[in-house]
């Protein structure tokens, strides 16, 4: 995995004409953004954050998508446990 990461960083740096340190910085920013969105959506789905605040933080599209997914997963798990 470590070798694969190094190879990818090198390839991205070459393709974009950036130093590898900047590729790492961008990767960290993107990763943090994903983790942040996960936390916001988890708090919203657990009723620890209201809907408007969740929309302010991650956008309406992601909140609405999470709501549709929640409905689907709840239906599926309920069915699977009782079928």
């Amino acid at each position: 995995m470590a070798a694969e990461i190094s190879d990818r960083v090198r390839e991205i740096a070459e393709a974009r004409g950036l130093p590898e340190s900047e590729v790492f910085e961008q990767a960290l920013e993107r990763g943090l953004e994903d983790l942040w969105e996960d936390i916001v959506l988890a708090r919203y789905l657990d009723d620890e954050l209201d809907r408007e605040e969740a929309i302010d933080r991650v956008g309406r599209t992601k909140v609405e998508r999470a709501e549709r997914e929640r409905e689907v997963v709840e239906e599926d798990v309920d069915w699977g446990l009782n079928a």
Partner: peptide, 17 residues
Amino acid sequence: FVTEAVVERGIRMLDER
């Protein structure tokens, strides 16, 4: 593609069974 928090909610439903 499924949001991590949604999957964790499904897992909690298994535990509440």
